[in-house]
Write a protein that binds this DNA or RNA. Structure first.
Lengths: 203, 203
DNA sequence: ACATTTGTTAACCATTTAGTTAAACTAATT
DNA sequence: AATTAGTTTAACTAAATGGTTAACAAATGT
């Protein structure tokens, strides 16, 4: 048995599927296109992953599990709130620049089938934000930051970091900037966003 | 000719198409499903709109032109920056609560075909943010707000307002809240977000 | 009244698509 | 060399899908 070749083909397929699914979504992707991208026969996709749905789920979980530890690591660290916000912003933006299709893919497919979130929550790597929430509450009680519900601050951090990547075609249109200039704006945001947030909650 | 009936059928179709396209996207939508939703024969869709692509574009432009004036009205008003931020946040969030699928639909389809933005820009109702940018520059120069590039402030305002609606399934999962509680959070944000922004730029 | 234009439908068509099958191939095992 | 388990392919199938056609119905102009 060629165990090694087995793994290579399987991961070649997964990688090709990732490229196609993340660019075109579940509905827009074609099994034939994924096979072409992987340089193999369409029947092999089914041999390894049975159906489009299962292949899609493999890609989706893979993508999500790439993103989740990024969140977890920072949210559950022992650092101060300010450091966390700075670290998160810096790491997240440089992470997404490497995986530009990822946030839109995840958000979009979760909108298509919101019940899928339930499956994800039960995975052991699903981000837990309890510690982060406690930390915010504590900072508010000590008067270190202005009163704000932890939920809102969390949403704001996510929004400021993720949205510009999801909405890039729209924002490029509004701002009348080209790809090059937009990319530069995104790089500026690695520090810009954390300053903005820290200012907003500074008491 | 039954001009009235004509218009009714045409708009019935457009409305049905809106419902289906905004929930399922271009690729996920089926012409038969749209016909069923409109309560008419599938051939009628083609009679009025020729092809799926043209029907989709009609829906898309319609959706966009519903949203654009909201932006324009506020961005080009004579109010102070603070008032603008407050107005925009309040109006926008209540607008989106009425049209929950709209932002995700627009952003998603623009990601699917980013070149479509060019077509939109040439439409006369496309939002122009020049005046808003000038206003920010002026406020920075007068020392009324902290130094910030107009582009970043604009992106931040959009992000904080729009993102929570686009990413709601994901955020509900992270925050472990149900639909009811999430809706309440969104209502709080009508004031929460503008306070946050104003604090962030206050000098 | 009746001819013409406009609106609507059922049946149909060509193509695309996910999935299947059976046979060929490969490489390790006996 | 024969067997066997696993891998890969070409050809096929059934269902779905966007779009068309031809016939029928309703409104309108003359």
């Amino acid at each position: 048995m060629k165990k090694e070749k087995n793994i290579t083909t399987e991961s070649t397929i997964l990688n090709a599927a990732k490229n196609i699914f993340q660019r075109k979504g579940m509905d827009g992707a074609r099994m034939q296109e994924i096979a072409d991208e992987a340089g193999i026969n369409k029947a092999l996709l089914h041999y390894y992953y049975r159906s489009k749905q299962l292949l899609f789920e493999a890609v989706f979980k893979n993508a999500f599990l790439l993103l989740a530890p990024q969140l977890n690591k920072i949210l559950n660290s022992e650092d101060s709130l300010n450091i966390k916000i700075k670290d998160f912003t810096k790491n997240y933006i440089s992470f997404i620049i490497k995986h530009p299709y990822l946030p839109n893919f995840i958000i979009n497919e979760l909108n298509r089938s919101p019940e899928f979130v339930q499956k994800l929550i039960s995975e052991k790597h699903f981000p837990n934000i309890q510690k982060f929430k406690d930390q915010i509450t504590e900072n508010v009680e000590n008067g270190k930051i202005l009163p704000i519900k932890p939920e809102h601050l969390f949403i704001n951090i996510m929004a400021l970091n993720i949205f510009p990547f999801i909405a890039s075609p729209l924002l490029k249109g509004f701002l009348k900037v080209n790809d090059e200039n937009y990319k530069q704006l995104m790089e500026e945001r690695a520090t810009e966003v954390s300053n903005f947030i820290i200012n907003a909650i500074k008491s």
